[in-house]
């Protein structure tokens, strides 16, 4: 990969970053008195006009599509950024497996911005043509579908596909020549493993369940993490305090929402050095994650306001911005 190939793309991303929301904009959004006021402010910052779209979710989808249309237009090799679509692709796979099993067709259950469409995945699962799937998806899809048929356990089906997604992300990170993508992949897998450990500790899952769900990564030991999870949340915090994720141990004891927020901010922090990189695929990767983070934060604010949460409760959940 020649980093100079990205000169045009990085410069365009820098220009786009100038219109991204910063922490002060997010604070202003939280302080807005109504959802309408939020969308008016977002419209002034170049977001899709909410009045022309049916609901808030349409605005978020339009913004997601805008991000990917820019990346597709400027990236010399779009395949480099496939790893950022894995979560959507594997979500679509989960939805397709369950839709075929329940024979429930229709409904807004698929991500349109994924590279594997819902229709395609539905036809693969319906015809049992798993070989038409890329990467490690064939085995995961077959196992998940058969598990669902035999056990009717939707959670087990989710675990199989989520684990396959984490493995795919880790492998993509190892393969990538871009340090930012490798860092992102490692951070995503590690924070996902921590989330699994926390949830399993709270719900009292067994070690073999955790072993099935957690994906190995370089910065955490799955065995130590699952052993800690069996002992409880304090043991997880104690183990994390000895790793690169010690800050996670601190926020874990504060509240679940603070921990979720820390996981997302850890991803952004891993990519923050890309703000000062003038070449390579790194700034594009950081832009994709930063836009996802931005949209997620606005979604939290809007949903909070729609449901009448106080500004304080919403503020506790908003993520710090990349821009």
């Amino acid at each position: 990969m020649n980093d100079l190939e990205y000169t045009y793309a990085v410069a365009r991303i820098r220009a786009l970053e100038a219109s991204m929301l910063n922490d002060s904009d997010i604070e202003k959004l939280v302080s807005c008195r109504s959802v309408g006021e939020c969308f008016q402010m977002l419209g002034e910052r170049g977001w899709e006009d909410a009045s022309s779209l049916t609901d808030a979710e349409s605005v978020f989808k339009a913004e997601e599509e805008k991000t990917w249309s820019v990346i597709k237009a400027i990236a010399p090799d779009i395949g480099v950024f496939d790893v950022f679509l894995y979560s959507k692709n594997y979500h679509n796979l989960k939805a397709a497996v369950k839709a075929v099993y329940t024979e429930a067709h229709g409904g807004n259950i698929f991500f349109k911005s994924a590279s594997l469409s819902g229709e395609y995945l539905m036809s693969v699962i319906e015809n049992r043509e798993f070989f038409r799937l890329p990467g490690n998806m064939p085995d995961a899809a077959r196992e998940a579908y058969e598990t669902l048929l035999h056990t009717r356990d939707g959670q087990l089906c989710d675990i199989i596909i989520d684990r396959a997604m984490l493995d795919a992300v880790r492998e993509a990170g190892e393969r990538s020549e871009c340090a930012a993508i490798s860092d992102y992949a490692e951070c995503l897998v590690a924070t996902s493993d921590i989330k699994i450990a926390v949830r399993c500790a709270k719900t009292g899952k067994r070690a073999d369940f955790m072993k099935k769900a957690m994906a190995p990564c370089a910065t955490l030991s799955c065995d130590s993490l699952s052993e800690s999870a069996l002992k409880g949340l304090d043991a997880i915090c104690e183990y994390l305090s000895q790793t690169a994720y010690s800050k996670g141990a601190e926020v874990l004891s504060v509240s679940p929402s603070a921990f979720e927020r820390w996981c997302d901010e850890r991803l952004i922090d891993a990519l923050r050095p890309q703000k000062y990189n003038a070449f390579s695929a790194g700034p594009l990767a950081a832009y994709i994650v930063a836009r996802e983070n931005e949209i997620k934060t606005v979604r939290i604010i809007v949903t909070g306001k729609q449901n009448g949460f106080s500004d304080g409760v919403i503020r506790e959940r908003v993520r710090s911005m990349y821009a």
Binding site: V10, R12, L16
Partner: peptide, 14 residues
């Protein structure tokens, strides 16, 4: 040439 590519990227947005 290198600077021109970067300049094109910025001018296309601004």
């Amino acid at each position: 040439g290198i600077a021109g590519q970067a300049a094109s990227g910025v001018v296309s947005e601004n």
